[in-house]
Simulated scan of single mutants.
Amino acid sequence: MQLSPKYELNNGVKIDVLGYGVYKVPAEECLDLVSTALDAGYRTVDTAALYGNEEGVGAAINHSIAAGTPREELFVTSKVWNTEQGYASTLAAFASSMERLGLDYLDMYLIHWPCPAQDLFIPTYKALETLYHQGRVRAIGVSNFEEPHLRQLLEAVDVVPAVNQIELHPWLTQTKLRAVHAELGIATQAWSPLSRGTILDDPVLLEIAGLHGRSVAQIVLRWHVQSGHLVIPKASSAQRIAENLAVFDFILDASEMSRINAMDKGQRAGSHPSEVN
């Protein structure tokens, strides 16, 4: 069994550097795939209300606990969806997520998108702070926030987000936003770390993968790890699930890291935060 190294968030809570993401994992497959990931050594699972598979995630987590895995070794993240933003509605959304997950507490809860046109992310985050202070969530954070959203948020709240989960991969390296995270003490967590697969035929990555005898996905995930990102790749087969976690036994040299960093072209596989409301 391969285990990911841990990363200490800004409040001292530890999370796996590499976890398992379940975006677009069908609800009926989620129990089996998350169980497969947990058996392979994953300890962090990332879901969201939007994904419609919190029940499967919770069932897999509870099965693992029943089989002897201590709850404190597992880390579960979920997110409040855009239509539930606002203080009271966020608290209600959290309660619904917890009922679906079947857990006593959540390890991390995020605002899924800033939705600036709604102008509700501050009261939404204040609801997250309430949950955090009540001990119902071990860490809170945001997802898809740009620098202006982060700075506006930090002027109005007390708890600095533990993470900002953003689209991040070699075609979208987010250098400026990552520097803002470093300045503010916010961890960068990459969603779509493989650009939804569109990056896997890139000739630079194919060449580096050949030199290491690794898959392109492993090269990209290793680049994330060495860049200091937290990362949550999705995989839909036992082979890929295991392969994605097997990236801690080799190193990319400085030249290879530079070549991958130079691939940035600002190309998104998902939506831009300013377009989501």
Rank of each mutant, 00 (worst) to 15 (best):
A60R: 01
A60W: 03
I61K: 01
N62T: 09
H63N: 13
S64G: 02
A66R: 00
A67F: 00
T69C: 00
T69E: 03
T69P: 00
R71C: 01
R71Q: 06
R71M: 07
E73G: 00
F75D: 00
T77Y: 05
S78T: 15
K79E: 02
V80Y: 01
N82S: 02
N82I: 08
N82V: 06
E84G: 05
S89Q: 08
T90P: 05
A95M: 09
S96Q: 14
S96F: 04
M98K: 13
E99W: 01
E99H: 09
L101D: 11
G102D: 11
L103F: 09
Y105A: 15
D107Y: 09
Y109A: 12
Y109K: 15
P114T: 06
P114L: 07
C115M: 15
P116C: 12
P116K: 12
A117F: 08
D119V: 12
D119W: 12
D119R: 15
F121K: 08
I122G: 12
I122A: 13
I122P: 10
P123W: 05
T124P: 09
A127P: 03
L128M: 15
Y132K: 05
Q134S: 13
R138C: 14
A139C: 02
G141P: 14
S143V: 10
N144C: 02
N144W: 00
N144A: 00
N144V: 00
F145Y: 13
E146D: 12
P148Q: 03
L150A: 09
Q152L: 11
Q152I: 09
A156N: 15
V157K: 04
